[in-house]
């Protein structure tokens, strides 16, 4: 911290204007971001050829069954307000195009981060006056998959500065924190050993650009938080609840790790 202040002061002293200092800092940040985006690999590149094939053809990708579910629900009026998603948001291909790349996002009204699932449920309870969908229900999974599918191919770009910064820091701390009986942190597998084998499986970088993802093991689509829970259980740690603050913060950090990767929802993984 002291070093940075000194650096700032130095730059300020030499250039003499605040505007130039800001520009210089921006450039530095931009460069590091680009360098990181080149080195990272989507989980797709770790999958077997057969699994990749399933994802490549939209007709054979079973995740699209959930996209269809979401598409049906999009224009279905529910709740006391008698509104559907379509009544406010119109064509999802236009209105939801940016949603898939920018969540989790900081929301002023709740004073913390919110991910797509929570945003959908907030819309349902506040605007549609309908009951919130249960986590991992086919409706919530369907809608999340449908919404995120609209951003397919666009690079993930979440905001981690400003009001989101403290939550991002918490997410990063979670990622690096040892936990469970095996005393392992997320980073031990997904940063230090990505590409190596854990028993018969190849460890990926743990990128979430394809979520909600169709997992062959699950035989259905599942959310990011279901995956987090699974990982936590594997290191014999007590998993947090779906939609808990801990997991939403972690989701932001993990999304940021994969910034620049194209959204692949619904991806197919083993």
């Amino acid at each position: 911290m002291k070093m940075r202040q000194l650096l700032l002061a130095l730059t300020f002293a030499t250039t003499g204007t605040l505007a130039v200092t800001g520009l210089g800092l921006g450039l530095v940040i931009g460069q590091t971001t680009a360098a990181k985006a080149e080195g990272i690999r989507s989980g797709y590149s770790y999958a077997t050829k057969e699994t990749q094939g399933l994802q490549d053809d939209d007709m054979s990708n079973p995740g699209y069954l959930w996209v269809d579910t979401g598409e049906d629900l999009w224009s279905k009026a529910e709740g006391d307000a008698g509104k559907s998603c379509n009544d406010c948001h119109g064509d999802a291909a236009e209105s939801m195009k940016k949603a898939g790349v920018s969540y989790p996002k900081y929301k002023d009204d709740i004073g913390k981060l919110q991910n797509i699932e929570q945003r959908i449920n907030q819309c349902r309870t506040d605007n549609m006056k309908a009951k919130a969908w249960k986590w991992e229900s086919s409706q919530l999974l369907g809608m999340t998959t449908y919404v995120r599918n609209q951003s397919r191919g666009l690079p993930v770009s979440v905001a981690v500065d400003g009001p989101a910064a403290p939550f991002f820091a918490k997410g990063e701390a979670f990622f690096n924190q040892r936990r469970g009986l095996l005393d392992m942190a997320c980073k031990h597998c997904h940063e230090d050993n990505a590409g190596n084998k854990i028993r018969a499986n190849v460890l990926s970088e743990g990128q979430i650009n394809g979520f909600p993802v169709y997992r062959l093991k699950w035989g259905k689509v599942g959310s990011t938080h279901r995956r987090f829970r699974g990982c936590n259980k594997q290191v014999r740690a007590k998993p947090f609840k779906n939609g808990s603050d801990e997991y939403v913060n972690l989701e932001l950090y993990v999304a940021w790790r994969g910034r620049g990767l194209g959204v692949e929802t619904p991806a197919v993984r083993n």
Partner: peptide, 24 residues
């Protein structure tokens, strides 16, 4: 609720062999 998908080429020439794909 659509729980099945079916894809057939929209157009084909008479005598052509077409591929029908489905998912449920």
């Amino acid at each position: 609720m659509a729980s099945a998908r079916l894809k057939v080429p929209k157009k084909a020439k008479k005598g052509d062999i077409i591929t029908v794909k489905s998912l449920i």
